[in-house]
């Protein structure tokens, strides 16, 4: 069936205007979708080719791209998308021993450590004692997903430079760069899912330990 076959005359209060039948509309939508896909492919190919011949010359930009591409949440983006994401990142410099956030604070942002050392601690969870994060690590990523309060303290143990990504910033990035945003959201979901599985396994192990202890008693 061709698009010509899907045409019909539509009665508009006595006047007849050309219109589409149901099949005609379906064919038209299919064509539109195909054009969209071809356009996306073509655009992607052109951008990739352009980026291959125009590697960022700025060493700082390259350093930033290297840092972000090593982070699980941001993996798989193109160079231009990393640079677009960089617009939404805020640089923060902390001195040694400075608090980044405290348990109970409203959580609004994720932190990426560029250099330095950060200690995460929570009085209620002894397992967390002495958990240090270093360059290339992230923390507070749950803030990108939902409104909640911080569940631990974050304090620097050396002079530390971080990049901060706010939930609002990520929302803007996703709206303005939908394809990159989709990848980041996919990565974030996978990352949080893995964290959840780890916690679940740890919980099961602890429950098992408790029940074994009870049996022994």
């Amino acid at each position: 069936m061709e698009i010509r076959d899907g045409l019909k005359d539509v009665n508009m209060g006595g006047y007849f205007m050309p219109g589409y039948t149901k099949e005609g509309k379906k064919i038209l939508n299919d064509i539109k979708e195909k054009i969209k896909l071809y356009w996306c492919d073509l655009r992607g190919m052109v951008v990739e080719w352009w980026e291959q011949i125009h590697e960022p010359e700025d060493p700082e930009a390259q350093e930033l791209i290297d840092l972000l591409s090593d982070i699980e949440v941001f993996s798989g983006l193109r160079s231009s998308q990393y640079l677009a994401l960089a617009d939404y990142l805020h640089e923060r410099q902390f001195t040694k021993g400075e608090s980044i956030f405290s348990e109970g604070d409203p959580a609004t942002a994720m932190y990426i450590i560029c250099n330095g050392r950060v200690e995460l601690s929570c009085p209620a969870v002894k397992q967390m004692d002495g958990s240090y994060l270093e360059s290339g690590n992230i923390f507070g990523e749950l803030a990108l997903c939902c409104e909640h309060r911080r569940m631990y303290d974050a304090r620097t143990r050396a002079s530390t430079k971080t990049l901060v990504l706010f939930r609002k910033g990520l929302e803007r990035f996703v709206y303005r760069n939908p394809s990159a945003g989709l990848k980041v959201h996919g990565n974030l979901t996978a990352h949080i899912g893995q964290q959840f599985l780890k916690i679940r396994q740890e919980n099961l192990r602890l429950n098992q330990q408790d029940s074994e202890a009870e049996v022994n008693e």
Partner: peptide
């Protein structure tokens, strides 16, 4: 717009940063 926002927020002390951004 994004660069202007980053510039104005860059001077905020760390302790107020998340609050001021909100």
């Amino acid at each position: 717009q994004q660069a202007i926002e980053t510039f104005f927020l860059s001077g905020v002390p760390n302790v107020f940063f998340e609050m001021i951004y909100q």
